[in-house]
Computed example of a mutant assay.
Amino acid sequence: MDIAYDDFGAGEPLLLVHGHPFNRSMWHPQRDFPGWRVITPDLRGYGDSPVVPGMTLLSDFANDLAELLDKLGIERVVLAGLSMGGQIVMEFSRLYPERVRGLVLADTSAQGETEEGKRVRNETADRILSEGMVAQAEVLISKMVAPDAEPAVVEHVLEMMRTTRPEGAAAALRGRAERPDYVELLGELAVPALVVVGSVDEFTPLPDAELMHDRLKDSKLVVIDGAGHLPNLERPTEFNAALGEFLESVLSNH
């Protein structure tokens, strides 16, 4: 699939994978890391990329990213993903371990979907198709960011959610309802990793981050104080400091 993307800077490749229901503008504060070529795609069904109705599995997203890297002539990459993006990063690591140089897992979870989770995701997909994304955005915003988030950040998050096309969002929700458990996989990965979580994240709280940190062989856990589910937007200075330190360590160790 020919997905939309931005390509910033030059140097070692860093691929940033957005969450649901967002787009590549989510990574605006992370576009400039000296010495790194920062690539931010719109996943299928989101932003400027084509919409494929029905069900989009995490493996579909991962294969799209591999195809994009092939197109760009990139063999190995540091992969960073937030929320659903983190699960896509884990699926990419399962399918293409030889292409992963380092992992950043932000505000995400490795556990497989529960039966209750499957029901809720499929019901939400149905509701999005019937009611649209504007209503869904109003429901989600209070859980997406901390109560004291900057108004401009809140508006950016709302705009991304409101403009996501219902067919794409619903297809991704149905696919995530079928997601496997990645906990065992994390224990098999031999690359350096950074696990980041907002201290007041309601969707993927600290215990989810601690589980991933414990399973990974070579990882650092960073908790962003006062941030909700989107610390890269809510606390970009702290998030970028953690990411920058990790990227430096990847360069120095490889």
Rank of each mutant, 00 (worst) to 15 (best):
L140I: 10
E115T: 04
A169T: 03
E167Q: 11
A169P: 03
V157W: 10
G187T: 13
A171P: 07
G198E: 14
P151A: 04
G117D: 07
T164Q: 01
E184I: 05
H156G: 09
R165G: 00
L140F: 14
R165I: 01
V134R: 11
L129R: 07
L186F: 05
K143E: 11
E184P: 02
G187W: 12
L189D: 06
I128E: 06
S142H: 15
E131L: 08
L194D: 02
T163G: 00
P166Q: 11
A169D: 08
L129T: 03
Q111N: 05
R162V: 00
P151E: 02
S199P: 05
G112I: 00
A146V: 10
V120C: 06
A172E: 02
E150H: 13
R119V: 01
V157I: 14
E113Y: 05
E167K: 03
R127S: 12
M133N: 02
A172N: 03
D148R: 07
M160W: 12
K143R: 15
P151H: 01
E178G: 04
E188G: 09
G132P: 03
N122R: 10
R179Y: 04
V145H: 10
E116V: 01
M161L: 09
T114I: 09
E202K: 12
K143L: 09
G175Y: 01
A110E: 11
D181C: 11
T163S: 05
M161E: 08
M160Q: 15
P192V: 02
G198R: 13
S199N: 08
V154L: 13
E115L: 06
R127H: 09
P192G: 07
L185K: 07
A125I: 04
I141E: 10
L158V: 00
L173G: 03
R174F: 02
K143S: 12
D148Y: 06
K143A: 10
Y182D: 02
R119S: 02
A171H: 06
V120S: 13
E167W: 01
M160N: 14
G168N: 09
P180C: 05
A146R: 13
L186V: 06
A135D: 13
E150Q: 10
R174D: 06
D148K: 06
E155M: 12
L173R: 03
R174G: 08
R119K: 08
T124P: 02
M161H: 08
V153C: 08
T114Y: 08
S142N: 15
M144K: 08
A135K: 14
V134H: 10
P151I: 03
V183G: 07
A149G: 14
I128S: 03
A135T: 11
E155A: 15
E159R: 15
Q111A: 09
M144S: 14
K118A: 04
A146F: 13
G175K: 00
L158Q: 03
M144E: 11
Q136R: 15
T164K: 01
R127A: 13
A152V: 05
V183K: 04
D148F: 02
A169W: 05
E150A: 15
P151Y: 04
A190K: 12
E113W: 06
L140N: 14
